[in-house]
Write a protein that binds this DNA or RNA. Structure first.
Length: 630
RNA sequence: GCCGCCGUGGCUUAGCCUGGCAGAGCGACUGAUUCGUAAUCAGUAGGUCGUGGGUUCAAUUCCCACCGGCGGCUCCA
């Protein structure tokens, strides 16, 4: 059975001429009209004859499902032979149509156009994305109901067909590749969640993501109603965390030889090279009109760097050649329903590194090194291998030529990874990986990624001169060592929410904690010494000098996830030490308290943050003079 | 873009179904308290009930539109 569903403002028909297969009808069926109707064009097929009842039942499910999504109350059943080239007998078709009508009448206002007539009809389609759907319903047992019901939006048909050519596998570290059906997901909960999210698109969530509450309560970031959605404001603590993460990624990139550059955030939509690129993609960019020019805000740093590469004189001896830009911002005009907290933004900060490589051999070597780097970068940021799942995607040709290389990638992370393989190359790359973070609501979001681009060097006419003096196009690797910086913060917050939920104590890595040590002087007479300790510690220290009880101030420090809380009273003053609560070794209701000298605490913190970027405290040291942002 | 839920002092929210003076906790401010490890006590101020229309003698409450948030669908270079 083939059906075509149109969500219409109205549908009206009028019988014109009888055909030889016409059913008998009475006068009132000669005309029909329904407003606000889901119109269902139906062709009953030969294959339905083996089990017409099942065909009716499956079709009913589909219609009801769509009608409920659209909140449609009126249904027009409209026989439409042209949907299929293999029609059933008229007798079966009429029976099926009548059964459908009867079954739907309980819940809906139903009209049925008569079978076997030439009819004039008029329909006004609403035109929204779900307003045109087609379904193939089959009674053949060998096809699963899910595959049979595979949704396909008519206008997107070609795209959907391309997507259908994805082959999915799980690759184990030992090199064994299995289909999803064969792989035993037991013990691989996150991998299963990622698979479900990626492939089945299964979602069971109906609440605000936990990091949204945390980003506000911890005064990291917030919505800005005065801007466009997905453009956030960052409070001092959030700005500091972002700044540290940004600095860190740039430092790591510099270590591997990337040159930092800066390029414009807006580009001419009619620039010859860019135009070709843009035309391939739907309008997802912010556009600006200025001085008779049409400009768009960049959605990645590729343009600026590629245009720069185009003008450069590059020798084969300069390769691999790396450049990085940290975009503040990249803009993507995501659809309104897609923008959520810090997970998906319309303006986001992204390190975008590009490597020009001599040939595939060099590109693959770089690819592997950058893969290793991404793992290490995320680890330092507080996101470990256990927090994300690896997806590796490639073309079949690439795989056939480089099986051992792919297996090595799975071996490095020492856990099963998801594989997506395409028969043909649809995108600009032949190989890519992403690390996908799995959050508290089982949603997956890509963090680090590296891609081998075989297309853009030619498009942007980027060349290097080889040893024979000939101009050659290099391969280009795209790499974001961390993914969007905001998304790292999202990941850290979600991770700590999950830690709290499972009975742990949440905290950020010490190098990212806005306050590293909070000093709590017990009474007024201890405040002066507290001020001296700040200088001795030499890290981000603040003093809770508010007129509150000790209990209250301890609690507040805990709610801010402060790694070290130092209490200072008569006892400590006498002995010249501090009573320090060490958050990383505490359990809920069981704080780990240690007496230590100020310089021991200082040394301990220096160990925690060794080799990582540092910035001074982003807020007034004395809490009594500190404003509230939220 | 489509569908659904939500929007009440800075924050969290009660009240809305069944129209009739808008209530609380936290925070802020003032005062008392100078305190030993997850919320000290008392008082004061603070509200265009998201915005705009409509219905009504009367709208935070009912209806419509818009804006914003969240979720789902779609999308994700």
């Amino acid at each position: 059975m083939q059906i075509l569903l149109i969500h219409s403002d109205y549908i009206a028909y009028e019988v014109k001429k009888e055909t030889p297969v016409a059913e008998k009808i009475d006068e009132q069926m000669r005309f029909g009209r329904l407003d606000e109707a889901l119109t269902v064009f139906i062709a009953v097929e030969k294959s339905d004859e083996s089990d017409p009842e099942k065909a009716v039942a499956s079709t009913l499910d589909e219609i009801k499902n769509v009608a409920s999504q659209l909140k449609a109350q009126n249904i027009m059943l409209y026989p439409y032979a042209h949907l299929s080239s293999s029609l059933s007998s008229p007798k079966v078709a009429i029976a099926v149509l009548k059964n459908l009508e009867t079954a739907l009448k309980d819940e809906f206002t139903v009209k049925r156009a008569p079978f076997g007539f030439y009819k004039a009809f008029e329909i006004k389609c609403k035109g929204h994305p779900l307003s045109e759907l087609s379904r193939t319903i089959t009674v053949d047992e060998t096809i699963t109901p899910k595959a049979a019901a595979k949704e396909e939006i008519v206008s997107e048909a070609i795209k959907a067909e391309e997507k259908a050519k994805s082959y999915w596998y799980v690759l184990k570290p030992d090199g064994q590749m299995q289909t999803f059906e064969d792989f035993n997901f037991t013990g691989y909960d996150n991998l299963k969640k990622f698979k479900n999210y990626e492939v089945s698109k299964s979602r069971e969530v109906d609440r605000t993501p936990p990091h949204v509450e945390l980003m506000r309560r911890l005064e990291i970031a917030d919505y800005e109603p005065g801007s466009d959605s997905g453009n956030m404001r960052f409070y001092p603590k959030g700005r500091m965390i972002k700044s540290l993460l940004e600095t860190y990624v740039l430092e790591r990139s510099a270590e591997v030889g990337a040159m930092e550059v800066e390029t414009p955030i807006m580009y001419d939509m009619n620039h010859v090279t860019l135009k070709k690129y843009l035309d391939r993609f739907p309008a997802r960019q912010y556009s600006i009109e200025a001085d008779k020019k049409s400009l768009f805000l960049r959605f990645a740093a590729c343009f600026g760097q590629f245009l720069m590469n185009h003008d450069m004189t590059i020798s084969y001896r300069d390769l691999p050649l790396k450049m990085i830009e940290l975009t503040r911002y990249s803009f993507r005009k995501e659809q309104r329903g897609e923008v959520v907290g810090l997970r998906r933004l319309r303006a986001f900060t992204m390190p975008d590194m590009h490597t020009l490589a001599l040939d595939m051999e060099q590109a693959m070597l770089e690819f592997k090194q950058q893969y290793d780097m991404c793992i290490s970068v995320l680890k330092d940021m507080g996101i470990g291998l256990e927090d994300y799942e690896v997806a590796i995607r490639f073309t079949r040709d690439f795989y056939e030529a480089n099986k051992a290389f792919i297996i090595e990638l799975a071996r490095i992370v020492d856990k099963p990874v998801i594989i997506e393989m395409w028969d043909q190359r649809f995108f600009y790359f032949v190989l890519k990986f992403e690390f996908n973070y799995i959050d508290a609501l089982d949603k997956a979001s890509a963090l680090s990624t590296v891609q081998i681009d075989v297309e853009n060097a030619e498009r942007y006419d980027i060349n290097y001169i080889n040893e024979h003096g000939n101009a050659k196009h290099p391969l280009i690797l795209h790499c974001s060592p961390s993914g969007a910086i905001e998304r790292i913060i999202y990941g850290l917050l979600e991770k700590n929410y999950m830690i709290t939920r499972s009975g742990g104590v949440p905290m950020l890595p010490v190098w990212l904690s806005p306050t590293q040590v909070r000093v709590i002087p017990i009474a007024e007479r201890h405040r002066e010494t507290a001020g001296e300790i700040v200088h001795m510690l030499g890290c981000r220290v603040d003093i809770d000098d508010r007129d509150e009880t000790v209990g209250k101030r301890i609690r507040d420090a805990g709610r801010e996830w402060i790694p070290y809380v130092a209490v200072l009273g008569d006892e400590e003053l006498a002995k010249g030490e501090l009573t320090v609560t060490i958050r990383s070794q505490s359990e809920p209701k069981k704080p780990k308290k240690v007496k230590m000298k100020a310089w021991d605490l200082s040394a301990r913190i220096q160990t925690d943050i060794a080799g990582l970027p540092y910035k001074s405290i982003p807020l007034p040291v004395y809490l009594s003079t500190r404003p509230k942002f939220v």
